Amino acid sequence: MARETGTKRIEASERTLEILGFLAGRERTTATEVAERLGIAKSTTHYHLKTLEDAEFVVRERDGYRVSLNLLTMGHDVVSQMSTYQAGKAKVDELARETGELCILMVEEHGYGYYIYDNRGEDAVNFDTAGNRKRLHDNALGKAFLSQVSSERVDEIVERHGLPATTPRTITDREKLDAELETARTEGVAFDYEEQLNGLCCVAAPIRDTQSDDVSVRGAISVAVPASRAQDDYFTEELPRAVSDAANIIELERQDY
Rank of each mutant, 00 (worst) to 15 (best):
L38I: 04
L38V: 11
L38P: 05
G39L: 10
I40Y: 06
K42Q: 14
S43N: 11
Y47M: 14
H48S: 05
H48D: 13
K50F: 09
L52A: 04
E53H: 10
D54L: 10
A55H: 11
E56A: 00
F57E: 07
V59T: 03
V59P: 03
V59D: 05
V59N: 01
R60M: 05
G64E: 13
G64Y: 11
G64S: 13
Y65H: 06
Y65C: 03
R66C: 06
R66G: 09
R66A: 12
R66S: 03
L69I: 11
L69R: 03
N70S: 06
N70W: 14
N70P: 10
L72G: 07
L72A: 08
T73P: 12
M74S: 13
G75D: 02
G75N: 09
H76R: 12
D77E: 12
V78W: 01
V78P: 00
V79W: 02
S80P: 05
Q81A: 06
Q81G: 08
Q81R: 12
M82A: 00
S83I: 01
S83K: 00
S83Y: 00
T84H: 00
T84E: 03
Y85H: 01
Y85L: 02
G88D: 00
G88H: 03
K89Y: 04
A90D: 14
K91M: 08
V92M: 05
V92C: 02
D93N: 12
E94M: 10
L95D: 12
L95W: 09
A96D: 13
E98C: 05
E98R: 10
G100K: 12
